[in-house]
Amino acid sequence: MIKSLKVLQHPLADSENQLEVLENSLGSIHPTFNEKLVLSGMYPLRASGIDIMQLNLGKMCNQTCKHCHVDAGPDRKEMMSRSTMQFCLDVLKNSEIDVVDLTGGAPELNPDFRWLVEQIKKLGKHVIVRCNLTIILANKRFYDLPDFFKQHQVEVVSSLPSFTQDRTDRQRGDGVFEDSIKALQMLNRVGYGKEGSGLMLNLVYNPAGAFLPPSQTALEKEYKMELASRYDIVFNQLFAITNMPISRYLDYLLSSGNYSRYMDKLISAFNPASVQNLMCRNTLSVGWDGYLYDCDFNQMLDLKLSTSGNQHISDFDFVILKNRNIVIKQHCFGCTAGEGSSCGGSLSV
């Protein structure tokens, strides 16, 4: 099993070193994200509200994907406590936030995962779980996850970077494709992805290499055809997501000699029309320790909110946070390239 950068004591495990590479290694000929926003008349970038609360339940994962921006893996121990979850529930109870997006690591590895889902559903909120699929088969205590998801009408969003084994396993590890297919079939068996079931199963494509995603529409059509004909699998939507030059993917870009070229691609593909729909504008990200961020990527770079206070879930203030300025750096080009990218895929602009 591949070890996390943190356990390897790799320099890029430190967010300050990542920011040093992102901000200073390309020289001054490249425009900054800040400058691009100014030229597009969209600076400063401000939140438009808070519709989604994204909770990172911990960095532990049963997989060690090569592109992981969280640097998650079996050797990571950070885990959201029940008391932090309770702060989140208190905020949700008293706010208009309708959607809770659970991510990790593998969020299901948090011992309070099921309790949290039950409590959120009691508040009448919609729950999204970013399930890596293989967790369902990782241990018999997870075999009933499809039934649990169904019982609570959880929307499942799962990564599958290709409908072929070779490309999936190269990015996500040996054997991941085979287990992912089995897990998708288990989800289909309880109704997920099937028309009229109301059980949403969305897949995520992200490139297995140093390039941008192709057209989401064409890719979804191909995935649907190939997964149905090869494995009798159905799903609702495919989200095409751009890989962020952060953490393990940044390490891959640098060690393979692709970093400069990849950043050139992201910068030259800057699409001003995508800025309006950036996920940071209507999402608030909560770290495993309760600290607040504009997005999951800023969380991994330890870029806390721009507000002077209200930086922790225990100090949440809806009115202040819903109008906050978003913290931006060079990695933000990852969300504005081409069709744009978010946790919900292309920004469809």
Partner: peptide
């Protein structure tokens, strides 16, 4: 070579 690989050919 880039385009075909990016579009998913092995």
């Amino acid at each position: 070579s880039s385009d075909a690989f990016e579009k998913g050919y092995s």
